[in-house]
């Protein structure tokens, strides 16, 4: 009797343990974050091809700043340094990919420190934050440095060819009034607008925009991988795509935008937001219907901001707004237990 209690290789056959019952011990934070990094690889490749060294510099800077901020702030808070779970690196990559190619170095660094500090650590670290850290950081620099982050900051004349044209959504916004008034139409389009009303450049990503948002193909490849690995919940992108498409179709129908619904969906950061930003497991709802409603809310708000506000793009603000509604969505959509009335 005493023998069996002390030798570890004769453990009892029947394990009895309180929940959670982890079937997959490999499914932990670090593994999830590495999956996200793998899924971001095609997006990073597309960024490298479209924006060359601009993308490398911006993303690298954000990753370094995020990891450094996490290490320093954990030291200051006298907590174990959580850099090893790779979540800071993921935040850095997503933040870097959401910035314009030629934003000055301090924009990325300040955004990273704010993302980790105000977005995550002040709430108590990973798992406690209410708002998507990368979007908190981006919103901070967006409101601070409109000159480096606004629509005009995306257009640079003495650089890569792709950077000399306006982003598709800015172009759409500039032509929206004339389109609605019927002064321009499919027959007599201004040159810039005709260029962006084409499917393949938008799908492959050879257009201007934030670093990671241009290539729909790369985002779909990475995003589907995330959903298949169940790191991202498929309900969120589905809700966002369905609601976004309905709104975009409505906008096309009542001529609020010169783009077709499909073009409107694959331009800007709508897809990147659907698969990589909104699916952050910490700041999205827990229940299946809650996730769907969360995605649908982001889709509707994004389209409303795009069409009705002064901003050409609205994914960032839509995600932050819906993050605030997550506790409510969780409460409203508690699933009925089996057998309950």
């Amino acid at each position: 009797m005493t023998d069996s209690a002390t030798t570890p290789d004769r453990a009892p056959a029947l394990h009895v343990a309180p929940s959670p019952h982890l079937a997959q011990t490999a499914f932990h934070t670090r593994g999830m974050m590495i999956d996200v990094l793998v899924a971001l690889a095609p997006v990073l490749l597309a960024t490298l091809l479209v924006f060359r060294w601009h993308g490398v510099v911006q993303v690298g800077l954000c990753v370094l700043a995020c990891v450094a901020a996490e290490a320093v702030l954990c030291l200051l808070m006298r907590k174990p340094i959580a850099v090893g779970d790779c979540s800071a690196a993921v935040t850095g990559v997503i933040l870097g990919l959401s910035l314009p190619a030629t934003a000055p170095w301090f924009v990325g660094v300040i955004a990273s420190v704010v993302a980790i500090g105000l977005g995550k650590v002040v709430f108590g670290g990973l798992g406690y934050n209410l708002f998507n850290p990368a979007m908190v950081g981006r919103a901070f620099v967006m409101l601070s440095f409109a000159g480096y982050m606004g629509a005009s900051a995306y257009v640079v004349t003495d650089s890569l060819d792709v950077l000399t044209q306006a982003t598709p959504l800015t172009m759409a916004k500039q032509n929206a009034a004339a389109w609605a008034a019927g002064q321009i139409g499919p027959e007599n389009m201004p040159e810039g607008l005709a260029d962006i009303r084409q499917f393949w450049p938008l799908f492959l990503g050879t257009v201007n925009g934030s670093l990671g948002e241009t290539s729909a193909l790369a985002i779909l490849a990475g995003g589907l991988f995330l959903c298949l690995r169940r790191v991202a919940s498929w309900e969120i992108p589905l809700g966002m795509l369905v609601a976004g498409f309905l709104c975009a179709a409505l906008a096309q129908w009542i001529k609020l935008t010169p783009l077709t619904a499909l073009q409107f969906m694959i331009s800007g950061s709508f897809l990147f937001g659907a698969f990589f930003i909104a699916t952050d497991p910490v700041t999205s709802p827990l229940t299946p219907w809650g996730k769907f409603a969360f995605g649908a809310g982001i889709g509707v708000l994004t389209m409303l901001i795009r069409v009705l506000s002064g901003y050409p793009e609205g994914v960032m603000f839509a995600v932050l707004l819906m993050n605030g509604a997550v506790p409510l969505l969780n409460r409203w959509t508690i699933p009925r237990p089996l057998g309950a009335k």
């Binding site: 901070f140 409101l143 409109a146």
Partner: peptide, 8 residues
């Protein structure tokens, strides 16, 4: 670079 958000 002025942090515009701070005066907002």
């Amino acid at each position: 670079p002025d942090w515009g958000i701070m005066v907002l």
